[in-house]
């Protein structure tokens, strides 16, 4: 168990290092960092001096080592466009994104699991067929189209909910939260639904197909042949056996929520990291792009580690493999 965790931590560190390398390449070799930082009128001598001062003439490994060292301290340089430290910009915007992702993840898991169980257990029920057809429409609706649709109905037509922003926010020790005000909750409803919808359908479909497959398994047939109660079979045996693939997919989907929040944040002008990133892409603001890349990779690594650890809780076979 411990050795497995250490092995996984080591692998995660390698992944992070690889991402840092890509990020470093972005930072140093895409375009010319010097001309990105200074104006047209700067002389060649000044440029050379800046180059020397920034350490851009030093050996590659040395530069990379310094980049990683800085990144570990949360230092990703100065935004070209906004002329402010990247870590400050990201720290300002992180709460908005994480709150949005948190609310969406809860929505997606609750509705995905309930819907998946229902459609998996009662596959011939009319409501299951309705849910499955709707879910296919859900997969076919691009996130931004859902957002536009919701804005048009609830903000433009009936004026129930705001179409942009976070509403009133409260500052708690540097973390701005919208979850403590009525206007904040009103503001998060539409973006959270928009962001959650696609992931909900994916979780729903994976749970359904896993349930259908497990229900055909011999041990379920044998459980029925032993006269076990339907509830025990469905939730005790079938559901528990679907958990491993479901945990994997759900974990990945929560990771995707962070990436998909780019779209939702753009549609709803949500002041989070995603909209910061998309502006960075449009204006070629490399420091923000590379910092965002490292950060998202970090979230993914953390989620993957959590998923791996959850396997152990669920599956005795894995515990045995590691022991032996």
């Amino acid at each position: 168990m411990v050795s497995f965790v250490i092995k996984r931590l080591f692998q995660s560190a390698i992944v992070m290092l690889a991402v840092a390398l890509i990020s470093f390449f972005l930072f140093n070799f895409v375009g010319d960092p010097i001309s990105n930082m200074v104006g047209q009128e700067t002389t060649v001598e000044d440029r050379a001096e800046l180059r020397e001062r920034l350490g851009l003439n030093e050996p590659f490994l040395y530069q990379f080592g310094r980049f990683v060292g800085h990144a570990l301290q949360g230092d990703f340089g100065i935004s070209y466009r906004l002329q402010r430290p990247v870590e400050d910009l990201i720290a300002e915007r992180m709460p908005a994104t994480l709150e949005l992702v948190f609310v969406s993840a809860i929505l997606a898991i609750v509705f995905g699991v309930v819907g998946g169980l229902f459609t998996g257990l009662k596959k011939d029920h009319w409501a299951s067929k309705l849910i499955m057809t709707t879910s296919l429409v859900g997969v076919s609706l691009p996130t931004f189209v859902i957002g536009i649709l919701l804005i048009y109905i609830f903000a433009v037509k009936v004026h129930w909910l705001p179409s942009f922003g976070r509403g009133e926010v409260v500052d708690i020790g540097g973390w701005t939260t919208g979850l403590l005000t009525v206007s904040g909750w009103k503001a998060i409803i539409l973006p959270a639904i928009t962001l959650a919808l696609y992931q909900t359908t994916l979780i729903l479909r994976i749970i359904r197909s896993e349930m259908l497959e497990v229900m055909r398994a011999d041990f379920i047939k044998f459980a029925r042949a032993r006269g076990l109660k339907r509830r025990d079979i469905n939730y005790g045996h079938a559901l528990k056996n679907t958990l491993i693939p479901v945990i994997t997919v759900t974990g990945l989907q929560i990771g995707s929520l962070i990436a998909f929040s780019i779209i939702t944040e753009t549609v709803f002008q949500w002041p989070g990291m995603g909209s910061l990133f998309i502006q960075a892409v449009q204006f070629a603001d490399i420091p923000i792009m590379s910092a965002y890349l490292v950060l998202v990779a970090f979230f993914f690594v953390v989620i993957n580690l959590t998923v791996d650890l959850l396997y152990f809780v669920v599956d005795p076979r894995l515990r045995a493999d590691v022991k032996g």
Partner: peptide, 11 residues
Amino acid sequence: LTIPPILIALM
């Protein structure tokens, strides 16, 4: 695979 395609394409 752990990184959504849309993010890679954006990059």
